[in-house]
Design a protein around this nucleic acid. Sequence first.
DNA 1: TTTGATTTTCAGATTTCATTGAAAACCGCT
DNA 2: AGCGGTTTTCAATGAAATCTGAAAATCAAA
Lengths: 206, 206
Amino acid sequence: MTSAGKPPRNAAQARAQLLEAQDRFIASWGRMGSVWGISRTMAEVHALLYITGQPMCTDEIMERLGVSRGNVSMSVRSLLEWGVIEKVRHPGDRKEYFQAEQDVWSMLRAIARERIKREVDPLLDALDEIGELAPRVAGQSQEEVDDLHTRLDEIRDGFGLITTLAHKFAGPRGAGLQTAAKLLARAPVGRKKSHASGRAKKAGDA
Amino acid sequence: MTSAGKPPRNAAQARAQLLEAQDRFIASWGRMGSVWGISRTMAEVHALLYITGQPMCTDEIMERLGVSRGNVSMSVRSLLEWGVIEKVRHPGDRKEYFQAEQDVWSMLRAIARERIKREVDPLLDALDEIGELAPRVAGQSQEEVDDLHTRLDEIRDGFGLITTLAHKFAGPRGAGLQTAAKLLARAPVGRKKSHASGRAKKAGDA
DNA sequence: TTTGATTTTCAGATTTCATTGAAAACCGCT
DNA sequence: AGCGGTTTTCAATGAAATCTGAAAATCAAA
């Protein structure tokens, strides 16, 4: 709230405002990253590349974010693996430049995809293993073992369904989150109640 | 794969298998918790209460998980706030017992709800603020400022749509994730690939 | 109200995770 | 091949989150 809202008097001021707005976006996205179990720097690098839209090299990123070379290198590698940024080469320049995926939905799909891979898939694998650990024994009265299996199955079904859907809509060749969102927004749901005001304005009102 | 698959010879063995299976579930759920930015213990307490289905008191939880009293107290409080466990009182017993929500979908809804609250809502608030920080100036040629706003708006629209849907389907009175999942599963998507029945290994081939 | 079992709190200890920085590896160019 | 400039790696460091344990607060029962 320092110099907010005021129209810029000159080019220098306008530039300062732009940079501050960018920095704030970077900070917010970085904070999100922490909550997500993504390193803050990795999220910040992504935010920087996304919000400026420009290809940047390692040194520019280091300078702008004030982090070490090694940290940038590792963050950039992860982002490449996630598929949310790509390398760009300038002819006659040995540096590597990086540019963010500019389509938001494609970016969100990539993020969702990666999170499912890291969070859900390992759990499902574990559930399969665990199920085999305490076998149901026919005819024997083992209420507790039956309960265990019931609960394991329910969890697995739940997450299994979620994963299937995720792959269907968020996979690399999936129909797209946007499609899914539109389908759902149109879907018939009993109540219609607008969600608790919370924020001023929002574009999401389907 | 230590002693897996073998049918138990006697009651004691069966019990040991049951406990080991439970422990493994608890460990898996706990690991998930870390990835989610939830404390491992909190996730473990929840897993324990869910998988056993039984109301347990602080001392039982401490003993089973091998964690401190304070830690259990704090974890239990968070779980109560999340609405995934509830207090149970036994008449003539001063201890408090805790029991997990047994309906998986209701549980998943609660988790989704809480995560959106912690992860998405703050970002949307920040985006609104940032937008006001570098005002568009009519008539002036400020390509970069325009770009900034375009990108901010796109992100906000994306997350806004997701949030709206989340509230609609995962909210306390929402239609339910299960409903959403069913709608989507049925939805017409160009390619169609039956989701592997038993989920043999991985579903990673969207 | 008193009692004692039970829960909560929180400063400090511990553990976990992110980051640095410098050495090593790499790579395009001549 | 040899020479920088550039990137990658990783042990050491630093920062942050988590956990403990014991003191303080709470509360049902007598």
